[in-house]
């Protein structure tokens, strides 16, 4: 078990300020939503900010704000995840290569295009010379960095910064469209779940966590467990994987208070989540979150940020609630999937 001693999220909602917790939901119309920018000049000097793509700015800022929230100057290690990586600067570079027929290519976008740009930027800014990892495995990217942190803690590291981030780039948006994942009719994010529909909305966010072996006065709660698995054959298999995960963590379904479900608004895909909830979680408060951040490969990190805030405040913003069973949010389970990558995360109030 690792304590969450700091967390900050930058998302399409006003989430970067921890003195409030989703007092209102920002509505967006269309099938893609972008992060609310914070004042990046507070983090980066003008000399470096001029080169940075959007994800580098909001990813690095979320990581640095998390360190500040935890009162940690230099983390003991850094491990992050990103599905698509720095896609916006990559596509800018690719346009440059192709348009100039490879003859007049500007290096700035290329330098920022490697997946480890955000985690190494945070290392640079926080003076962290220790372990630094970046996972890029679709819907398992965040979970892999979390497992990395659990291993690091056993290996003697502490105060490990983990997080995950992705951005809506022109390329990722077009790809989601081509793959038939997005709503075709105009949609307002706040009405993502109101009718039976096909497709979801593209989204983005960066969420970070400072994980420690010791709790302190700023502790939000704890990460108690994580399991990743490939697409279950049917709802029964999902149910048995979930039950086994809970019992491996010495919990029964009844002992859970809240289940955060990665419903994406596509009723074909959400059917599996519904089946799991109907079969195991009829006594739990059920929350959904993708109306706030949209769908992207590392959205489970956004949900983990929600869980952390809920545990600390012991209250749940109205906007998240799908079914309310009036339970105190002590033990929280997150179930999310992204195109064949399924994950369960367990959180405990402390």
């Amino acid at each position: 078990m690792l304590y969450i001693n700091g967390t900050v999220c930058i998302s399409p909602q006003n989430t970067s300020d921890n003195s409030v917790f989703l007092p209102e939901v920002k509505p967006y119309t269309g099938n893609k939503i972008y992060c609310v920018d914070v004042d990046y000049t507070k983090f980066f000097d003008p000399g470096s900010i001029r080169r940075m793509g959007r994800l580098i700015k909001f990813g690095t800022a979320a990581g640095m704000l998390t360190l500040k929230d935890a009162g940690v100057e230099t983390p003991g290690a850094i491990s992050t995840g990103t599905g698509y990586g720095l896609m916006d600067v990559s596509q800018k570079f690719l346009h440059n290569v192709i348009d100039s027929n490879e003859t007049s290519v500007s290096p700035t976008s290329f330098i920022q295009s490697t997946h480890n740009t955000v985690s190494s930027n945070i290392a640079l800014m926080s003076g962290c010379h220790a372990h630094n990892n970046t996972f890029a495995h679709r819907g398992f990217s965040f979970e892999s960095s979390l497992l990395d942190a659990f291993l690091l803690a056993k290996e003697g590291y502490d105060n490990i910064l983990v997080g995950a981030y992705d951005e809506v780039s022109d390329h990722s948006y077009r790809s989601m469209k081509r793959l038939g994942l997005l709503r075709e009719e105009p949609c307002t994010n706040t009405e993502l779940f109101t009718a039976e529909q096909k497709g979801t909305i593209a989204g983005e966010a960066a969420a970070f966590f400072l994980l420690s072996k010791e709790k302190n006065e700023n502790t939000y709660g704890a990460f108690a467990g994580c399991k990743t698995f490939s697409a279950p054959a049917n709802a029964d298999e999902l149910k048995s994987i979930t039950t086994a995960f809970l019992s491996a963590n010495n919990l029964s379904a009844n002992e859970l208070d809240v289940v955060v479900s990665g419903h994406c608004g596509d009723s074909r895909l959400d059917a599996l989540n519904e089946a799991l909830i109907d079969s195991l979680f009829t006594q739990q408060t059920i929350l959904v979150y993708k109306q706030l951040c949209g769908e992207y490969m590392t959205s489970s990190a956004f949900a983990a940020w929600l869980a952390a805030r809920i545990m600390k405040l012991q209250s749940i913003p109205e906007t998240l609630i799908k079914v309310n069973r009036q339970r105190q949010p002590k033990n929280i389970l997150l179930y999310n999937s992204h195109r064949g990558n399924h994950a369960l995360l367990l959180f405990k109030h402390v």
């Binding site: 080169r51 007049s104 290519v105 500007s106 290096p107 700035t108 330098i111």
Partner: peptide, 9 residues
């Protein structure tokens, strides 16, 4: 040094 490369471009 990166700016120098940009100036070359």
């Amino acid at each position: 040094s990166i700016d120098a490369l940009e100036l070359i471009v």
